[in-house]
Structures are given as structure tokens and as C-alpha cells.
Nucleic acid binder design. Structure first.
Length: 295
RNA sequence: GGGCGGUUCGCAUAGCGGCAAUUGCUCGAGACUGUAAAUCUCGCGUCCUUCGGACUUCGCAGGUUCGAGUCCUGCACCGCCCA
């Protein structure tokens, strides 16, 4: 008998965190974050982390787990998340996986079998210097199937596919498999209407600036420089451009809003694929679905 | 009042006689298994089921031409300079 897991997902700024906290209070739950940016310590304002106070004594996991100059991967996330969820279940609490990183969520929902090939920096650098056409030709030989899913212009993903092929001597596409379900899962999605979401996104961006996003970015640059991958997130890259005097503050704000909107769109296009998601509008709807699910 | 320069798909931009018209952004749709807030693809005048075809477009009104976004004339609006 699989143990139960509730997933709360939705586009950025849709109110997932608030909803999840309320639900966790209601159902004796604890929260595991599924957010690829909130894993970083010291990146609080720009990633819209909930504050200690907002957490309202509900334990939150997988937030603030690594430094901004460290690397983090899907495979690590999956291991940590599964372990954390099981741990919560062992203590007879209801785990709530909450976030907007579609791939992270899918790794749990579909129990993705991630090829155990650790990123090989040297190989990646070497491949990085080759032309896309060359990488494409090589992939065509080693794993033609993968080209159905990877475009010739997508160097990053061609490199990963080659990395897996070369290291395992097997094709990458053969190894992208789903495992047996790990949990009995209920997926709840928040789908705000477009106008509302756009308004919330804009308001949140302005609030971030007021709350000291610029200071946060300055401090991060001082400690880690502006090169780490963590600084490529929305809200950070734009403020960096502003601090480097490439754009005005108004322009930076505008770009943050645009990029966030585009991100929300990409998230929705990811979520739309999963027909198991139950889309809701209100807390009460969510509460009812969960009640039915756990009884 | 005079002299230039401009007016092209939401915004910006190309176009100097064969064009439904370039490019970037926005916007819309989509892909996604160890970087995923990343990376990448497609679409974007209207209509037709398609390779494709039909129709309407480049400030407005005329003109030249087989053919005009492109040349000519007039008008309107915007920008800069001289008064």
C-alpha cells in the first residue's frame, strides 16, 4: 500500500506557498519545496521565499540547502525529496510537495530513472567547443532516437545526451525511463486567470525591489561574483545588468516582469501535459479534494 | 515662414521598381530525465484542408509604369536645424 503524498503546483506567483501552509495546518502536514531556486541560501527576496513567520510553524524542507556558488542537480533533488517525504510519512504526518519546478515534480510523480552519469566537466568543456553540427552527427550515430526530442540548436541537451551515451555505452533515450510509483499521489494545481496572474507578478516584482532585492544582489556579487549559475535566475540577472549600468532600474523592473510572465507561461505549458492534475481556484476546493483523497 | 529627416504587422527596425514584405522584442503554442527561473523549437495580415492558393496591406489622395512600400505631385502628422 503506497503512502499518500499531496502535491501543490502552479505557475509562479499563483499563491502556492500560502495555500500549502493553510492546507498543511488543516491536515497535519509538512512541506517539501519543489523549487529549483529556493534551494539556495542567501537568495531570499528574488526567489520569493516564504519567511519564517509566514511558515507559521509548519516545517519546510529543501529550502536553503546549498550555497549560491554550489551546483545542484535533478538527481540530487530527487534523492533528497524522496527521503524527506518518506521521513515525514514515517512520523505519520502528511507530506505536501509544493513548487513550480515541473521537472522536479515529475521526477517524484513518475519516479524518473535518471541515468547515473555524473556531470563530467572535462567532457562537457570539450564538447562545448565543438559545433552543433558535429555534436548532432555524433548523436545521430550513438542515439538517433534522442534527436526526436533534442533539437540541433540545443547544445546543452545534446551534450548531456552524449555524456550519457559515452559513459554508459548505451543510448540516452533507452535510459530515460519511469519507475514504479513511489507514492499514492494527489496533484492539485492552482490556475489563476491570466489577468490576475499578471497583476500579481507585477506587484511582486515591485515589492521585491522595495524589500531590498538590489542590496541582496550586491551582497551576493560581493561574496560569489556574478558568474555562478544561481545568479541566472529571474530577478537576479536583471539587477546585475542594472548594477553594471547596462540598463536603467525601470528597465530592470520591466524585464523582471516580462521574464516572470514568460516563465509562468512555460510552467503552464509543462503542467498542461499532466492530465492527472486537479485544477482548483480556492482553498475550499483544495480542502475538499484532499479530504476525499485521504479518507 | 524656410531647410532637411521621418511616417512599414503591438513596439522598434530593414526595404531604394517584381514583396505578404527583413530583423529584434513583445505576444501565442510547444519540447523537456544529473544546469530546468535553465536550454531549445514553432507560429504571428486575412481566408482556404495541404505542397500550395486566393484576397487585403506599408500615413492620406492622386499620378508615372506591364508592375509601386519603393519614383513623381499635393495634403496630414512627428523630429531636428535656420528664422
Amino acid at each position: 500500500m503506497l503512502k499518500k503524498l499531496i502535491i501543490i503546483l502552479g505557475p509562479t506567483a499563483s499563491g502556492k506557498s500560502d495555500l500549502a501552509i493553510k492546507l498543511a495546518k488543516e491536515f497535519n502536514g509538512e512541506i517539501i519545496s519543489a523549487d529549483s531556486r529556493q534551494i539556495y541560501k542567501e537568495m531570499d527576496i528574488g526567489t520569493a521565499k516564504v519567511t519564517k513567520k509566514e511558515m507559521d510553524n509548519i516545517p519546510h524542507y529543501l529550502i536553503n540547502i546549498i550555497n549560491p556558488n554550489q551546483e545542484f542537480t535533478l538527481a540530487q533533488y530527487k534523492k533528497l525529496a524522496v527521503k524527506t517525504i518518506k521521513d515525514i510519512q514515517k512520523r505519520n504526518k502528511l507530506p505536501f510537495l509544493v513548487g513550480g519546478t515541473g521537472l522536479y515534480i515529475q521526477s517524484i510523480v513518475d519516479n524518473l530513472q535518471i541515468p547515473e552519469v555524473v556531470p563530467d566537466k572535462k567532457l562537457r568543456d570539450k564538447l562545448e567547443n565543438q559545433t552543433n553540427q558535429k555534436l548532432y552527427n555524433q548523436l545521430k550515430k550513438l542515439d538517433p532516437e534522442s534527436l526526436k526530442v533534442i533539437n540541433i540548436n540545443n547544445k546543452r541537451r545534446m551534450i548531456r545526451a552524449l555524456e550519457v551515451c559515452l559513459s554508459t555505452k548505451k543510448s540516452f533515450s533507452q535510459q530515460r525511463k519511469k519507475g514504479k510509483p513511489l507514492f499514492n499521489i494527489l496533484q492539485i494545481g492552482i490556475k489563476p486567470n491570466k489577468k490576475t496572474l499578471e497583476r500579481k507578478i507585477n506587484q511582486r516584482a515591485d515589492k521585491m525591489i522595495q524589500a531590498g532585492l538590489i542590496e541582496e544582489v550586491k551582497n551576493l556579487i560581493k561574496k560569489y561574483g556574478h558568474k555562478p549559475y544561481s545568479m541566472s535566475g529571474i530577478g537576479y540577472k536583471e539587477i546585475i545588468s542594472y548594477l553594471e549600468k547596462k540598463i536603467s532600474l525601470d528597465k530592470a523592473k520591466e524585464l523582471i516582469k516580462i521574464h516572470t510572465r514568460q516563465y509562468a507561461r512555460r510552467q503552464m505549458s509543462w503542467f498542461r501535459r499532466d492530465k492527472k492534475i486537479k485544477w482548483i481556484k480556492t482553498y475550499l476546493e483544495a480542502k475538499k479534494i484532499i479530504r476525499d483523497f485521504i479518507n
